[in-house]
């Protein structure tokens, strides 16, 4: 009996995501015990899922980057810029699909610039994106003149469906699942993904293996920009207005999601499922703090503490 249980536990422990899964279930359990129905009622769960979808979509790109040994601090700013660009494009009368395409291309373009600058100037991406984070956010402020952009027609499938629910689940969650599945296939089942992880595991050996590092770096940064763009468009669909303040601080939540999900900051290891679970955990924590009636200020403090605790617990569970 105990032998079988032992074996089962051993197998569970082998799963990379076990740490974050345990942390997520514990936090949910705690919230259920303390605030009860308020937490588990459907409207609240939908709210959490929608909030998690923004982090989750972006965490897919972040898991790819981190497992390559790269990072992007400008993703919150890219989200904002895409959000504003798409809104402005709609305001200027572009058809919805064109406006969305322009938005997504902006996101991918921002990512490309991040990667290209890093390669061209031989600067680590953490430094490049520290700079472009301010550039992109600044551009969003210039374009929007620092006010919400909402004077456009909301009668399109983007707002009817994109900002709503499909089969009872927020559409952005479906989008997240599609992005996550694509990201999973890319990372774990494609040549690109394996070689990207090779770079994260040992960049010099990857170079000796003929993997073109600059090209991979630019491609991964571009993908990161694109998924940030997708998150930006989904936020626009939900809010029905381009907001120059949305996306602030998202980079930290997204990086935290990936790390809580078991991605190594040093590269070479990471799973998309872990990133998504990490995003869910952060969304639950933020939601729980509101339900527990923490002031917004204290909420920020507690979020940080809980993130550190979650990473620590995750690591502890994996080691046991």
């Amino acid at each position: 009996m105990t032998g079988e249980r032992g074996a089962g536990w051993h197998r569970l422990r082998g799963i990379d995501e076990i740490g974050v899964l345990v942390a997520l279930l514990s936090v949910c359990g705690l919230l259920w015990l303390t605030v009860g129905d308020q937490f588990v009622r459907p409207s609240n769960l939908l709210q959490i899922a929608r909030q998690a979808s923004s982090y989750g979509i972006m965490s897919v790109g972040m898991v790819l980057l981190l497992s390559m040994g790269e990072i992007d601090l400008s993703i919150g700013a890219i989200l904002t810029l895409v959000n504003i660009v798409t809104a402005v494009a709609l305001r200027e009368g572009m058809p919805m699909p064109v406006a969305v395409l322009v938005g997504l291309l902006t996101g991918a373009g921002c990512g490309f610039v991040n990667g290209w600058l890093g390669v061209l100037l031989r600067i680590p991406t953490i430094i490049v994106t520290l700079g472009t984070m301010s550039v992109f956010r600044g551009l969003a402020l210039v374009l929007s003149e620092a006010t919400p952009v909402s004077n456009f027609s909301k009668e399109s499938v983007l707002f009817d469906l994109g900002g709503n629910t499909l089969l009872g689940v927020p559409t952005s969650v479906w989008v997240m699942l599609v992005v996550a599945l694509s990201g999973h296939l890319l990372l774990q089942h494609s040549v690109f993904g394996w070689r990207a992880q090779a770079i994260g595991s040992n960049a010099q050996a990857a170079l000796f293996s003929g993997i073109p590092l600059p090209r991979y770096r630019i491609a991964a940064m571009t993908i990161m920009g694109l998924v940030s763009g997708i998150a930006g468009v989904m936020e626009l669909a939900f809010l029905q207005s381009g907001s120059p303040t949305t996306g602030q601080g998202y980079e930290l939540f997204v990086i935290a999601s990936a790390i809580i999900g078991g991605t190594a900051l040093a590269g070479g290891r990471g799973t998309v499922a872990g990133g998504i679970l990490g995003a869910l955990l952060i969304a639950v924590i933020r939601n729980g703090l509101v339900l527990l009636e923490f002031s917004a200020y204290w909420g920020t403090v507690v979020t940080g503490v809980v993130i550190i605790a979650a990473v620590a617990i995750g690591g502890f569970v994996k080691k046991q």
Binding site: V191, W194, R195, A198, S201, N202, Q204, A205, A206, F208, S209, G210, G268, R269
Partner: peptide, 24 residues
């Protein structure tokens, strides 16, 4: 290469992943 740890292998990877990296 002369240094298999630094230039040759992904040390935290499996045998299978290392052996097939170039022919994926």
């Amino acid at each position: 290469p002369e240094s298999r740890r630094e230039q040759g292998l992904m040390m935290d990877w499996s045998i299978a992943r290392n052996a097939t990296l170039l022919v994926l």
